[in-house]
Computed example of a mutant assay.
Amino acid sequence: MKQLTFLIFLLSIFQYVHAQPSKFEKWSNMTEASVKDTVFRVSSMSNDAVDIPVTFIRGSLKGPTFTIIAGIHGMEYPTILSLLELRREIDPKKLKGNLIIIPIVNQTSFYQRRPFVNPMDSLNLNRVFPGDPKGSITEVMADFISREVFAVTDILLDMHGGDAGEDLIPFMCYYNNKEFEIQTKQALLLCEASGFSTIVSYPYILQTDKPALYAFKQAVRQGITAFSMEIGKLGNWDRSELVMAKDAIYRMMSALKMYQRQKINPRNTSITYYGGQTYVSVPVQGIFYSSFQAGDIVHKGTEIGYIADIFGNILNRLTAPKTGTILYKVGTPPVNKGETLFCIGHQYDKED
């Protein structure tokens, strides 16, 4: 009850973070509760072009603009499909505020089934923010999102999942940004409202002259209440993941007093908090073997896998540098030097 009261307090003093006028602001001409689907074409100076599909949903009453994006990586299917269903279900007459839904940011990756990168320039869209209007097509896409989409966004949910080679447990995550304390507290409360049983806090360490790289980290830098969802694994999906992702959004909209849905599947209210992650990088290219899966607990010094060459000869044995829970890991055999092999989360007590 205290958390709900605090969330209402945050909303009462929440200042909407509108920056320079955006092409997106043209949709403000929608004076009645309605749904509008549109496609924005963005082009690079080398004449590469992509279409970014956007749904605008204007509510019947004034309120915050909640932007939800998925498909920055084209093979993260549960989140993409959940947004496509959400778009069909929302009744704008029952909505307070506005929803911006971008279900598949990177359509080229999606339709060509290319994990992580845009096949047009082989860049990872979630590693080039804030982007560059004079750069390659992926950098132009990031620039469009940073300048146009974020300019009209008050709250951002950046949805991700296990791409083709990733095994992970479902979790919500946010940056512990001390510069924008109100937005950080609101991000945490919305993560808690989602119904997910795992919440991960990332440290916010970003020098002023360094790029954010990640989409929702860029939004945090711009003073937006931003957080992310991770669900699904190994480039696959099932109905339960889709429903879990969609129910989480309904819970968050309910917490924001934006939308009420009568039927939402019950979720475990027990939450485990993780922070101070430890990353294990791939030391050498090869074939990865491990009996551990996402969600398993590993202990410092325990062997957690090994890497072999193409003849099966062991090149490197891997041990856990710290005790913790595997939040995500590479779930397929091929690995390349420098890639993140394991992310190990360290549990903490929120009350401490």
Rank of each mutant, 00 (worst) to 15 (best):
L11E: 14
T319Q: 11
P321S: 06
E85H: 14
S270C: 10
T269M: 13
L81D: 01
Y111R: 12
P103E: 11
K185D: 13
I264H: 00
G295S: 06
A248K: 02
I304N: 01
Y259R: 02
K210R: 12
A212S: 09
G295E: 00
P266K: 08
Y289R: 06
T108H: 12
G324C: 04
T184R: 14
M172F: 14
V335I: 11
Q183K: 07
L190Y: 03
K337C: 02
L84F: 11
K337I: 11
I297A: 14
E241Q: 15
Y250Q: 06
M159Q: 04
N268W: 05
D309S: 11
A294G: 00
Q218I: 09
V335N: 00
S146I: 07
P78W: 02
D352N: 11
D132M: 09
L188T: 12
G165H: 04
A294Q: 00
I8V: 11
T208N: 13
M45G: 09
N118E: 00
G74K: 05
F6D: 14
F110Y: 15
Y328T: 04
F292I: 08
V152G: 00
I102Y: 05
K134F: 05
F288C: 03
G223A: 11
P119F: 02
T340G: 08
I304D: 03
R127P: 03
L206W: 04
I68M: 10
I13H: 06
N316Y: 13
M30G: 07
E89G: 04
L234D: 09
Y204I: 07
A33M: 05
G135F: 13
M244F: 14
G235C: 11
N265W: 12
K337R: 08
R147G: 04
F292T: 00
N29D: 15
K134I: 06
G59S: 03
F129V: 01
H346M: 07
L188P: 13
V152E: 00
I304Q: 01
P321D: 06
K94Q: 07
S136W: 09
N336T: 15
V284F: 04
F110A: 06
V17Q: 12
T208R: 15
I52M: 09
G324A: 05
T38R: 10
K263D: 15
M252F: 08
Y274S: 09
Y273T: 05
N118S: 02
L213I: 14
A320W: 03
G312R: 11
I13F: 03
K2H: 08
Q20Y: 13
L125Y: 09
C191A: 14
R221D: 13
M244G: 09
T340Y: 06
S194Q: 01
N268R: 13
T67K: 01
Y175M: 13
P78L: 09
L123Y: 01
N177E: 15
I169G: 04
R221V: 10
F171E: 03
N316A: 13
I102N: 08
S146A: 14
T269W: 01
F180T: 06
C191Q: 14
E179A: 15
A226C: 09
S228M: 08
G345C: 05
M120S: 01
L99T: 02
I57V: 05
N126C: 02
G63A: 04
I52L: 06
D163W: 01
G223S: 11
